[in-house]
Design a binder for these strands. Structure first.
Lengths: 350, 350
DNA sequence: GCCGGTAATGACATCGATTTCACTCGCTGG
DNA sequence: CCAGCGAGTGAAATCGATGTCATTACCGGC
């Protein structure tokens, strides 16, 4: 490996002078040094620079699952910012597990200047320890109990749920089901609450067997949708609280040969690239994705600037928007029975 | 920041002893040291360790676009390996640009022990410079001219193209179009060649205006599909060389109200999560995704092991598999005209 | 021709962890 | 009872880049 001393020797100056030259100060023998750098192909050791400066110019990003198109888009937005600011991204998945998240954070704290985290659950205490490590932390997508002291870029989940509810109400649905996310995550809790509140305000109660909790994964959307279909009184409309569960639910409806939206309307949270191409094109609650990543990274880099280091926490809340495609429609028989639905599971057979 | 010297002072020993203890050697005052570590919350500086050891335990991963579900899955596979081996991933997008790729690689070389790269093009010389930096490099998905000296995990692209062609031939298509990727990328070139060869072997020639080149992005699939539809003699079947272009083409077909597969059959390369749910469910050439990431990372970590450091390059080629869903069917009128297709673009109006 | 002031320079210490080397201590065997 | 061995220890060197500090070189002005 070529060091700054090799360059110095080659140019006939001291290492200190080479260092000064590289950092842009005026130096007598700049041509000789530049020539030596070019000839030897010198590039400074990042480890040595980090050790001396205490900065890594690296940002740690922890998301539950990079294959979720939402998080992939968020990370892409973040990267567009780090690139422009000569930072880099250390990426890890937590697989929706708080333990794994703890491990990853404990490791990252030693190697990054700042962290962006989409927490696995709200209960987790550990991320707060990050504070002791003096590494700034920004939350994205999901908040944390006791997380008010950190920057965050969130989405108005309750309002999103509300929009979904009002859309279904307007269509005339009264037997409505929700497949929500884990109640110990911000989006799991708030989307459900907003949804149920708006329904209640519209005079519609959701019966307990229509009020289901999933884990944000496709498989749980599939299973819970199946269980809804096997009910004596299946819903005429279903709200799924994230993109993957929407997909799972849609698969279940397909497999059971349920017509969407003829027999059951489906409205999801988070749009998909393939949303318009699905059978049927999905009606969803959409939110900015790339932009969310951009904002979170800007917030973090700003906080790394000593001038803003101790500013009060900033909490940005973005709005949601209904994209009305074709997976929702008026219920076939308003208030009617479930006669047109096939029976599955342990339901008494006809 | 707590250093090893703080711990040493606290435990009444020298820094050297603390270091030895932490690295698992026998030490007289292990309890005292452990207590000091716990009490102070010491964790060693990654920068100092890297400087001394010359290792970062970090792997650089450069992909064209993390929001492409294929690359997201590949990265996830890689991460499952790094996690188990206590490595980390530094991630960057090249945005399909060789210049950006050069920048990113030049930067990463200083901060990682090894690199995995899905090159933007084959023409690029730069990644070969990585060799000078003594940083092992593994190619994934795409190869490089002169890249034979590196490890690689590839896919039999030509065979995939062949499978697609044979599927269309078997259905009886004769007017067939291809939307390929850039000819200076491995998958762009090989998929097209395999496809055309197999068609030729089956006695079908692809006319020049049916032999189109895209850039692997959704937009180009959309545009090129539109242009195919505006031809005097539109194809009865289209092969799109990657997932995003398939999506773009499908959108174009939808927008033009072309029935798939009634009027035009569509077969893509790379499956999508939503593949089965699309309108119609997509027939595609599939390949292992997660596994490809796992294999590439294993190959790389193995090469970091000094024992295997100078082994001859390993080149793994995985097979592809046809998933026959519903976007392909027999042509409506074998050899017939384009009468059923709507005209778009500058085509003379009826 | 000499002085003062500024600009540029090199030796050295530093960041934190690890490793080498010479040394001490405690034990065993003769 | 002492030589000899091995385990365990701390001081110091090291990794590579950078900041400090004292020193040198150079300029104009008298």
């Amino acid at each position: 490996m070529i060091t700054i001393h090799d360059v110095a020797a080659h140019a006939g100056v001291s290492a200190a002078t080479v260092s000064r030259f590289l950092r842009g100060r005026r130096v007598r023998s700049s041509e000789a040094i530049q020539a030596a750098v070019d000839e030897l192909g010198y590039s400074p050791s990042a480890a040595a620079q980090s050790l001396k400066s205490g900065r890594t110019y690296t940002i740690g990003v922890v998301v539950p699952d990079i294959t979720n198109p939402y998080f992939a888009a968020v990370v892409k937005g973040m990267e567009s910012v780090t690139r422009a600011e000569s930072y880099r991204i250390l990426l890890a998945n937590s697989d929706e597990s708080s333990e794994r998240e703890d491990d990853v954070l404990a490791d990252m704290v030693r190697r990054v200047d700042g962290l962006i985290l989409a927490p696995a659950t709200e209960r987790d205490r550990s991320p707060l320890n990050v504070r002791d490590a003096e590494v700034p932390l920004v939350f994205i997508d999901r908040d944390l109990k006791g997380g008010e002291h950190f920057d965050a870029v969130l989405v108005d989940n309750a309002d999103g749920g509300r929009q979904a509810a009002e859309h279904l109400l307007k269509l005339g649905h009264t037997r409505i089901a929700a497949i929500s996310g884990p109640p110990d995550t911000t989006p799991g809790r708030c989307r459900r609450e907003g949804f149920l509140e708006a329904l209640a305000a519209g005079g519609v109660d959701v019966s307990p067997e229509h009020d289901l909790i999933g884990d944000f994964r496709e498989q749980s959307g599939y299973q819970l949708a199946l269980s809804l279909l096997s009910l004596p009184e299946p819903p005429t409309a279903v709200f799924t609280a994230n993109n993957l569960m929407t997909l799972g639910a849609l698969k279940a409806l397909h497999d059971m040969r349920v017509d969407v939206p003829g027999q059951v309307s489906l409205i999801g949270f988070d749009d998909l690239d393939t949303g318009p191409l699905l059978r049927p094109p999905l009606t969803v609650i959409d939110r900015p994705m790339i932009e969310q990543g951009v904002l979170a990274m800007r917030l973090l880099l700003r906080r790394l600037d000593s001038e803003y280091h101790n500013d009060i926490p900033r909490r940005i809340v973005l709005g949601t928007k209904l994209i009305d495609r074709a997976s929702t429609a008026q219920p076939r028989k308003p208030g009617g029975g479930a006669a047109t639905l096939p029976r599955v599971g342990k339901t008494r057979s006809r």
